[in-house]
């Protein structure tokens, strides 16, 4: 297997694998976030569990971080190789005649997601790490000790219309990324086209519903508190 991950097809498998993992993570992330709309208590409970359970913190979280970094670094490597495979460009190229915009612009939708992830880390992840591991407060409680802090922190973040705007735009690009990416990952992994039509439909549904759900959550908290 030594040369496998250096080969073009090996890299596609690795890309698809990291993408599967990210799509699964996204689903799980959504399932917890949507709780915040229905029940602040349930959201607090789930957040506290995810934020303090050792297997999540010390096993899944490092895998996730590795997965994200692997995915976009490999994305850049593939993009660089693909660009170098055609040195002289066409004077006239009608890409729309044979392929979707989404499929031709994965690197740009991906870069938008990356920019969002930077913002997301600054917004949520760094403060979490700071509170829990630098200040050493694992209680998950508010400063005044009256209940959990997670819901309040979330609601507070979505007060700013600028941040909500950035979230909405980012999730539109995530939707475009997944619109091609979902079925593409299956094709890369060698899935047979017999299942393709249903798969495509399911992929489109996932690519629309999940990002739209995240947008809904952001907007819900924004308007709920004004």
């Amino acid at each position: 297997m030594s040369g496998f991950f250096k080969s073009s097809i090996g890299r596609k498998y690795a890309m698809a694998l990291s993408a599967f993992f990210l799509m699964f993570f996204l689903l799980q992330h959504f399932a917890i976030n949507i709780l915040s709309v229905f029940s602040p208590d349930a959201f607090n409970e789930a957040s506290h569990f995810m934020g303090t359970f050792w297997a999540v913190q010390y096993v899944l979280q490092p895998i996730l971080i590795f997965g994200v970094i692997y995915h976009f670094v490999m994305g850049f490597i593939l993009e660089a190789r693909n660009r170098s495979a055609r040195v002289k460009k066409y004077a006239k190229n009608n890409g729309a005649a044979n392929s979707s915009w989404m499929s031709r612009n994965m690197i740009y939708s991906g870069l938008c997601i990356l920019a969002f992830l930077v913002l997301h880390f600054i917004d949520f992840w760094f403060p979490e790490i700071n509170t829990k591991y630098i200040q050493g407060d694992m209680s998950g409680l508010l400063g005044n000790g009256e209940g959990f802090r997670y819901y309040q922190e979330l609601a507070h973040k979505f007060e700013s219309p600028l941040r909500v705007g950035a979230y909405v735009i980012a999730f539109v690009f995530l939707s475009l990324h997944l619109m091609h990416g979902f079925s593409s990952a299956f094709q890369s992994a060698g899935a047979s086209s017999m299942r393709k039509e249903k798969l495509q439909l399911f992929g489109k549904a996932y690519a629309i519903i999940i990002p739209l759900g995240f947008i809904f959550i952001a907007l819900f908290h924004h308007f709920n508190h004004h």
């Binding site: 073009s8 890299r11 495979a85 044979n98 031709r104 091609h180």
Partner: peptide, 27 residues
């Protein structure tokens, strides 16, 4: 040659209608 991104352009433009299924099989 570059790497396949599954855009499907090849299948549309192929004069012989070779299907993308062949790429999945090769993988």
């Amino acid at each position: 040659f570059g790497n396949c991104t599954n855009t499907g352009a090849c299948e549309v433009e192929c004069p012989k209608g070779i299907s993308l299924e062949n790429i999945a099989r090769m993988n």
